[in-house]
């Protein structure tokens, strides 16, 4: 049973270089439905999995995930399963906050599984990324509107990227019942049921920015006004969306 007011849970990850070229995790903490596990990393980096994401968020829940890659860290974060937003007993919507920070000489790869907005759910996702000027980032967000053949719930997401305190991207997407009219029309999603973003920041983009291009009919690579690119994609379903975003990441090298 979800108590009145929903569950409040936090997870925190802190990674930093250990001074010997490897990545240490001085802080790795989760609570309640948000558990975090260190898994076998590749090379000198650290890899962390968010587990137990299946259990929520339900209406009224408020989850906060914080991750910071400090100098020298190579941190990769994934999730064990898709996150399913479900309706709760609480009439209030759920909120899922993600705050990411990457210092100079550090890298964060934030590659969670899809977020699925189930019928009747109401979720607000806020992702805020703060990068130091030479930080490196790969971030993927995928929203799937409804399980197979199901009408979606209400989903709003806001993604902001700051580099050196300067805001390069502030993008909000609202879908489902209660979203401003026209969200699924020919300007919005045009009937597509999966929408995703891949955000890549690299200091070398400041001097050699990638070229704007269409990657597929529903996907474009968009250089932002600074050393970062956004791949914006829509697809009929989550599987095809993942293929588009994987191909985009491979194309960036």
């Amino acid at each position: 049973m979800t108590p009145p007011g929903g569950v409040r849970a936090r997870a925190e990850i802190l990674a930093r270089g250990d001074g010997h070229g490897r990545t240490a995790l001085p802080l790795l903490a989760g609570e309640g439905p948000l558990a975090v596990r260190r898994t076998r990393g590749t090379g000198t980096g650290a890899r962390v999995l968010l587990v137990g994401a299946m259990s929520g968020p339900l209406g009224g829940d408020h989850f906060t995930v914080t991750a910071r890659a400090a100098a020298g860290a190579r941190l990769s974060v994934g999730s064990a399963a898709a996150t399913l937003a479900l309706p709760g007993q609480d009439r209030a919507g759920a909120r899922h906050e993600v705050r990411l920070a990457v210092d100079d000489d550090a890298e964060l790869r934030w590659l969670p599984e899809q977020l699925i907005s189930a019928h009747g759910s109401d979720l607000e996702v806020v992702t805020r990324v703060d990068l130091a000027p030479t930080a490196r980032l790969v971030l993927r967000e995928e929203q799937v509107l409804g399980r197979a053949g199901e009408e979606p719930g209400r989903l709003s997401s806001r993604l902001t990227l700051r580099i050196g305190g300067h805001c390069l991207l502030d993008q909000e997407l609202a879908c489902g019942p209660g979203a401003p009219a026209g969200w699924d029309g020919p300007a919005g999603l045009g009937g597509h049921r999966a929408v995703g973003q891949l955000l890549v920041a690299r200091p070398e983009f400041a001097t050699e920015p990638p070229v704007t291009r269409m990657l597929a009919e529903g996907a474009a690579l968009l250089p932002l006004p600074g050393p970062a690119v956004l791949v914006s994609a829509v697809a009929p379903d989550g599987l095809r969306l993942r293929r588009l975003l994987d191909a985009a990441l491979a194309a960036l090298g």
Partner: peptide, 14 residues
Amino acid sequence: PARSAPLLEIGAEA
């Protein structure tokens, strides 16, 4: 506000 319309952005590049 920062509300976006994905197909407007993608379509503009096409």
